[in-house]
Amino acid sequence: MKAEEFDQYVRSQFREEAAMPPVGVEAAVFAAVDAESKGRRRVRPAAALLIAAATGAALWLNAPESVPAETPQPVQAAPVQAAPVSAAPAEAAAVTQEAAELPLEQNHDSGTVTVPEQTAVPSGTSSSVAIGNPVQPQPLEPIGSRNAASVVAAGEGNAAELQRKGEETWVLPAVVKVND
């Protein structure tokens, strides 16, 4: 008989092996399993409490630092910005800000157009930069100093000039070079 045959025979004999364990083992197994699950049940709330406490402490410690960060910068800047403009009336600054936010047709009823003064704070610079700027702000242009007609005329003139040169209306600014 070959070794493989012998192995096969032994293996087949143990295919359905079974032996009844003593009753005491079952009790010992479930006592250990219960103790383990009870331990886990105790650890879970303690761990949750610890995590909650740690999170709370972290939030509390971070809270004073995060409050100023959340405050928008322009709110603090407003009084500082207003201070040097002593010559202009306070309402003029407010109107300028409003005008920047609102579309042009807001003042159509009165026949005047408010154009936001872009030269006071150049685009791309933040309000904090404007605060630190030593250049004295220009006095604000009062509403009504420019009428709508002049603005429209300027736009039309531009279009007319473009049409005259290229016999076309150019919507976007463009530079065209024509080589002979």
Partner: peptide, 19 residues
Amino acid sequence: AQREVYARFSPMMFAVALR
């Protein structure tokens, strides 16, 4: 369920352990 699984498979496991 744990008790049922134990009752069903313990004889096989004990036989292996004895071997």
